[in-house]
Structures are given as C-alpha cells and as structure tokens.
C-alpha cells in the first residue's frame, strides 16, 4: 500500500480530513482527527454496547419463553399475585423518566445547561420512585414467602396464603429475612432448629444418606432432596421458576437502573462544572440511549410478568 497523497481519495475513508475546521475543543481527544469523528465513534460504541445488553437480557427472555410454554397455568397464577396497580404506575413512571431524559438531551443539544440539569434531576426523581415501588413490591413477595429458595411457598388453591407462617416470621423485617436467607436458614423459621447440611443443597452429595423433612431417605441413586420445607415441595409446579425469573429479570433491570442513577449523578456533577455545551454533549446523548434502553426492557417486562392470563382463560 502506498502512502502518498492522492486528492481523489480524500472523502472515501472514515476519517474526516479537515481537522483544523472547528478549532480545538477542550474535549477533543488526540487520537481522533475531528470532533465529528469522535462523536460518531462514541455513538456507535454506545449502540454496540446496547445490542450487547439486548443479548444479555435475551438469555433471560429465552428462559422465560421456554418455561412460560411449559408451565402456563403456574405462570398465570403466579403472575396474578403481582399488583397491576403498582406495575402500571411504575410503567408510567418509567415512561415519564424516558420523556424527561429525552428532554434533557434536547436541552443539551440547545446548550441550555440549567434546563439540562433540571431534567436530569427530574429523571433521577422518577427513577427513585420506580425503585421505591419496586422495594414495596419485593417486600410484599418476601412477606408472602413468594421468593424462590428453601422458604418458598405458593399454593394459590390454599387461599393464596401459605400455611405455616409463624407469628415470629410475620414480625420479621426485611433485613432479618435477608440475613436468614444469606445464612442459609430460610427454610427454618425462627424458633425451629436449623440444619445447615440440609440448608445447602450443594452439601448433600449423592451417596450420602440424608433425610428429608418428610422422612424419606435418599440412597445412592436418587437426586438429593430439595432443600427446604414441605411447603416448597407442595407448591404449584413451575411457580417457583416463575418467581425465580421474576426476581432475576426485574432484579437485573433494577440493577441497570441503579447504575443509571449513579451515572446521572456523575453527569450532573460534570454539567455543574460546565463541561457540556451545544458543541459537546456526547455523554448526555449516550446516557440517554442507555436510559431509554432500560425503559424498553421494562416495556416488555411489564406485560410478560404482570399480565399473564389476567382474564382467567386457558
């Protein structure tokens, strides 16, 4: 390949060839020829990152699709325990935060820094409301023992509420529950003895004879017994998978929102320092893309998790 100057080829490559045109912007990085090239590269990078995110959530959607087909009745029944009011409210809140984010980008494009900061704060407030509602929803699941794991219990036929929730358990706070969950003692409500060998499924290897709460013993061949109480075994088949997916999907979504909130603090700080102007607002624009993506995930999660078989058909 030759490297001599040839006037005909100037506009063929991806490089712009007019580096000096717009003067030197302080945010212009040395390895880019022009600010335009820098902006294009960042934008494409963000989009490539987002399609990576699509595939990341895609794995969860794939699992969801398989199990929803297999356990449709359980998915319907379990979905019915979610509050449509809270779900709809949160959807509106998140769509609203998408609007404020779009307006923040718009303000940045026009170089209106005060307005930009205002809309970022509005987006953060809406994000906080969403996460707050999520906390309420999660805590309801914890109280009703509809969380996957050893303490899981879901018996829609039994009046929707599991038997055997002791008074001590009802008084437990979320941190108590979490603590018990983390230490593997969730199958054993306060007051009952905890058996750590049973609490860890991984600890019961085949070949070791262990006794389930019902008194069956598993010998050489069988799988180890499901750790947890008898309510877990009696729960509607597939319902625990629904709740596992519910927590995995909404949890992963919430994690993305929490990361987004952190990023917004950083943007706010930079905007306050006067880093953004009509000539340079790439971080705002790219963050906007991220935030809208998180919104899109929720747009799918809402009907898929909250609205399964609400009309009671088959």
């Amino acid at each position: 390949m030759a490297t001599r100057t040839d006037p005909e080829v100037h506009d063929v490559g991806a490089h712009g060839h007019h580096a000096g045109d717009e003067g030197h912007h302080p945010r212009h990085l040395h390895h880019f020829d022009t600010m335009d090239q820098q902006k294009d590269a960042s934008g494409l990078g963000m989009w490539v990152f987002l399609i990576q995110e699509v595939m990341f959530f895609g794995g969860l959607f794939c699992a969801y699709l398989v199990y929803r087909n297999r356990f449709f009745p359980a998915f319907g029944a379990a979905s019915a325990t979610l509050s449509i009011e809270l779900g709809t409210f949160n959807t509106v809140v998140l769509i609203g935060s998408s609007l404020t984010m779009a307006l923040a980008v718009n303000a940045a494009q026009r170089g209106l820094v005060k307005r930009l900061m205002g809309f970022i704060i509005a987006t953060m407030i809406l994000g906080t409301v969403f996460l707050g509602v999520k906390v309420v929803e999660y805590s309801q699941k914890f109280e009703k023992r509809e969380i996957p794991g050893q303490n899981f219990c879901f018996e829609p036929q039994g009046g929707g509420r599991c038997a055997g929730v002791s008074e001590a358990q009802e008084k437990e706070t979320i941190p108590d529950l979490l603590k018990r969950y983390m230490t593997g003692g969730l199958g054993h409500p306060p007051g009952e003895p905890s058996d750590s060998a049973l609490a860890h499924g991984a600890a019961s290897i085949p070949g070791e004879t262990v006794t389930t709460p019902e008194g069956h013993s598993s010998g050489e061949e069988g799988p180890p017994p499901l750790p947890g109480g008898s309510e877990r075994q009696r729960s509607m088949p597939g319902s625990e998978i629904y709740f596992s997916l519910y927590f995995a999907m909404t949890g992963m979504h919430a994690l993305h929102m929490i990361i987004g909130m952190g990023l917004m603090l950083w943007l706010l700080y930079n905007a306050h320092k006067g880093m953004y102007s009509a000539a340079y607002y790439t971080p705002i624009e790219n963050f906007g893309l991220y935030w809208h993506f998180v919104d899109i995930v929720w747009i799918y999660l809402f009907p898929l998790l909250y609205l399964i078989n609400r009309h009671g058909g088959h």
Binding site: G16, D36, Q37, K39, V92, I95, S98, A102, F302
Partner: peptide, 24 residues
C-alpha cells in the same frame, strides 16, 4: 457525518409520550 444533528421538537416528544401512555 451524523453530527449534522436533528434536534427533535418538544411537540414530537409529547406526542410520543402520549402514545406510550395510551399503549400502556
């Protein structure tokens, strides 16, 4: 280059927001 940027009108954003609410 992409930077010949289209600045969306506030009316469009409001319209889309409305459509999203209706969709919900």
């Amino acid at each position: 280059h992409e930077s010949v940027h289209h600045i969306g009108s506030l009316f469009t954003y409001a319209l889309i927001f409305g459509a999203l609410l209706i969709g919900t």
